[in-house]
């Protein structure tokens, strides 16, 4: 294997960047174009009308809010139950620990569509359909395993002496978690939140079956925009807005991703 020169590498990265950005660029361009005939704005010309229409539409604004609510709830839930579980897997051995870890990974690779019908039936019975809470809960099925898997690696990398001195100092498990463990694995929490966010934000199968009449997230609100005369510009503007939180998230964790993280089984 020959090592690539600096120029060679730069060329590869530029080609890669173009491959990623060019399809998106078109979407962003169209989002600034009026694609339906309207009074005062010639069709196909630059305008902010699509973004203005989103602001004027209560349905679309609610969808953005719903998406943000469910994704935040989901990340909080996954971190809240994932951190203690990851700590247990990293520090202790207990009856059936490997089997349990394996079971969790099985649910990470279970196709979500397999679970969609019974989840719809179950959630309909307990009144969790058409609400962001239901989506937040159901996305835990693949996000809890991933958060335990990532956090376990980060916690394992923390020397055990941190725990031992803290307990000698009289910390309870809870105060140890908040005073010592969480600050020590902060980058890990960032990376975990990032992965939970991306997997939850983009998921459409479960989100669709759980929001037939209300509580629709951005993805489903976009689906509803398609019709007899689809306003492509509006669709693209919604898509661009749907990207903003994700890109912000990527930006915040970029250095932690770039530093790399250790994961093990």
């Amino acid at each position: 294997m020959k090592s690539l020169s600096l120029t060679g590498r730069i060329i590869v990265f530029v080609v890669l960047g173009a491959f990623i950005l060019v399809p998106l660029a078109q979407t962003i361009l169209i989002s600034f174009v009026s694609t339906l005939p309207r009074d005062g704005i010639p069709e196909g010309h630059f305008s902010l009308v699509n973004y203005k229409n989103i602001l004027l539409s209560p349905v679309l604004k609610e969808a953005i809010l719903n998406s943000i609510i469910y994704v935040l709830l989901n990340v909080a839930l996954c971190l809240g139950v994932g951190l203690p579980a990851a700590y247990a897997f990293a520090r202790y051995s207990f009856v059936a620990d490997r089997q349990l870890f394996f079971l969790l990974l099985v649910f990470r690779i279970t196709p979500t569509v397999v679970l969609s019908l019974p989840i719809f039936v179950l959630f309909a019975q307990i009144g969790l359909v058409n609400t962001p809470v239901g989506i937040a809960l159901v996305h835990c099925v693949f996000n809890i395993p991933i958060s335990i898997w990532i956090l376990e690696g980060f916690i394992s990398a923390v020397p055990r002496e941190l725990d031992e001195t803290a307990f000698l100092d009289g910390h309870t498990l809870v105060s140890f978690f908040f005073r010592h463990l969480i600050p020590a694995v902060a980058p890990g929490i960032g990376v975990t939140a990032f992965f939970c966010f991306i997997f939850s934000w983009v998921e459409v199968v479960l989100a669709r079956i759980l929001t037939t009449t209300g509580g629709k997230p951005i993805t489903m609100a976009i689906n509803a925009l398609f019709g007899f005369r689809t306003d492509v510009g509006l669709v693209m503007a919604m898509t661009v807005l749907a990207l903003v939180p994700g890109i912000a998230m990527i930006y915040f964790v970029r250095n932690h991703l770039a530093k790399g993280f250790v994961v093990r089984t």
Partner: peptide, 11 residues
């Protein structure tokens, strides 16, 4: 890394 992860956050 920022560039290449952008498609991951597209619904």
């Amino acid at each position: 890394l920022v560039l290449i992860t952008i498609p991951l956050v597209v619904p």
